[in-house]
Design a protein around this nucleic acid. Structure first.
Length: 480
RNA sequence: UCUUCCUUAGCUCAGUCGGUUAGAGCAUCUGACUGUUAAUCAGAGGGUCCCUGGUUCGAGCCCAGGAGGAAGAGCCA
């Protein structure tokens, strides 16, 4: 095949008069008597290349087949554009139509579509500018995650996707089995006999790579995982997926403060990377959001544009405070005094969305890191504070997103960890390997989990998590 | 899982008090137009009013059940 030049490259080119090949999908065609203009996109950039077609030198059939959605290859001369909207255009000499898209049936029209409609055609939505922008940013963020950790001496550890333990209790799990669902083998108690299953035991899709990640950190010092994670929770919100991607670094010899510093550096690095490498796409999404804002009531409008918001995060220190201090602020807050909170505030109860939003969006107006939560509302593996009441947990809360990172310093003392397992009635048999890290060469260590899609949600300014992953998996939906 | 709202043309939506042939904008098609930028102008085609049952002389509209979707909440990342 003839070597194509990506649209992104051509738009930056000044080699006017050169002969080039370009291939892509038609976004729109504007036709008049003598000349037609085709906006061509190949996904390399959010911008289109304008193809100028001299109507008299092409067959009627070719012209007819060039419509929204069609895939074409164009040979022509790169020229300085006579029109207003672009610097570069391609004067077409030869056009090959690879594939047509019947305009009567092709669902994507040269007009604005709702996100709900585009979710129904998730197989085609990457062709829209919005999803193209989101997917390019998603790629850049994945790359930046690896670059960040690699540059700091972290090793990428592949933790298992199929697990044999429900250790963390992070949520409902998806069972993995090859047993006959209609007639499974039963044991003497009349329940399913998993010893006859593929792995000889009950297995599930992972809800977190953390516990295995800790094993890696106890040897390589600095590791991170980045992989798919599954939760069978019946969560129907704009912030939850049944299948999502999670990044979980785990660091030996890090205490809670080291952990917070890493988390803050990491988030700022990622946002900065997006600003440096995806500015075109961010600008497009920013404009798109501003259009949407115009349809909102004054009080619902966000005070900052997308790019402005991203710069703000990079340039400002995250606010750090303890759970106890946060409760104090909430108790003294206006909405609490006026009894506007649905859920009452008191020490010992978990913070509700409305409380987190108040702290982040009203009180501090910036990202917040909350630490030292009461131990009974946090996981068994978190390191206990000297007061016996709290643990060294930290949650990073972002405006509009809520909890984007959850992490902690881990309990490295065998006896303390073991007694927590007993207290919380966790199956210790399935955790024997985890407990051995505390028996043999235990060391202080910390880690956190970042929901990748929640990061993308923040960076792109999109409103629903189903629109920042190519093929969302949610309750009642596994199409495509 | 709970609460609230929604489902009418390909898309986004209007549809009055239950009343004759269900509308608009965009998209599509046809024509016009000397370079357009979501082109413009003129015209045309396009409907299982989500499904099932009920009330009624008569249902897009009222009632019951079901399906799907959205927002918020819970759970969390």
């Amino acid at each position: 095949m003839e070597k194509r030049i990506p649209v992104k490259e051509l738009l930056q080119s000044t080699g006017f008069g050169k002969d080039v090949h370009v291939k892509g999908w038609v976004q729109t065609k504007r036709e008049s008597k003598n000349v037609a203009f085709v906006a061509l996109n190949d996904g390399s950039t959010v911008h289109h290349l304008q193809i100028v077609v001299d109507v008299s030198s092409f067959s009627e059939e070719t012209l007819k087949n060039i419509h929204t959605g069609a895939s074409i290859a164009v040979t022509g001369t790169l020229a300085e554009s006579q029109g207003q909207g672009q610097k570069v255009e391609l004067q077409a000499r030869h056009i090959e139509v690879y594939g047509t898209a019947d305009p009567e049936k092709y669902p994507l029209q040269p007009k604005r579509h709702s996100m709900e409609f585009l979710r129904e055609i998730a197989h085609l939505r990457p062709r829209t500018r919005t999803f193209g922008a989101v997917l390019r940013i998603r790629h850049a963020m994945a790359f930046a995650v690896h670059k960040f950790f690699n540059d700091r001496g972290f090793f990428y550890l592949h933790t298992p996707i199929i697990t044999g333990s429900d250790a963390e209790g992070a949520g409902e799990m998806f069972r993995v089995t090859t047993l006959d669902p209609v007639d499974p083998p039963l044991n003497e108690f009349g329940t399913v006999d998993f010893t006859q299953d593929f792995f000889g035991k009950e297995t599930n899709l992972t809800v977190s790579g953390q516990l295995e990640g800790e094993l890696g950190a106890m040897a390589l010092s600095l590791i991170y995982t980045f992989g798919p994670t599954f939760r069978a929770e019946n969560s129907n919100t704009a912030r939850h997926l049944a299948e999502f991607w999670m990044i979980e670094p785990e660091m030996a010899f890090y205490d809670l403060e080291d952990n917070m510093n890493l988390a803050e550096d990491f988030l700022k690095y990622l946002v900065q990377y997006a600003l440096e490498h995806c500015l075109d796409d961010l600008q497009f999404l920013d404009n798109r959001l501003q259009e949407e804002e115009k349809n909102k009531k004054q009080e619902d409008r966000s005070p900052m544009g997308l790019i402005e918001k991203l710069k703000f995060v990079v340039e400002n220190q995250f606010e750090r405070l303890t759970y106890t201090e946060a409760i104090d602020i909430l108790i003294k807050s206006k909405p609490n005094q006026k009894k506007q909170f649905v859920y009452p505030v008191s020490w010992g109860t978990d913070l509700q969305s409305e409380h987190e939003r108040y702290l982040v969006e009203k009180h501090f107006k910036k990202p917040v890191i909350l630490t030292n939560y009461p131990k009974h509302i946090k996981a068994f593996y978190m390191k206990q504070d000297e007061d016996g009441k709290t643990v060294r947990a930290m949650d990073v809360l972002f405006p509009g997103i809520g909890e984007i990172i959850g992490g902690s310093q881990r309990e490295e003392n065998y006896d303390k960890l073991y007694s927590r397992i007993q207290e919380m009635k966790i199956h210790e048999e399935s955790l024997w390997w985890y407990l051995e890290t505390r028996k043999y060469g235990t060391a202080p260590h910390s880690g956190f989990g970042l929901g990748f899609e929640r990061l993308i949600l923040f960076v792109t300014g999109m409103g629903n998590i189903r629109d920042v992953i190519p093929f969302p998996r949610t309750p009642q939906n596994a199409e495509f």
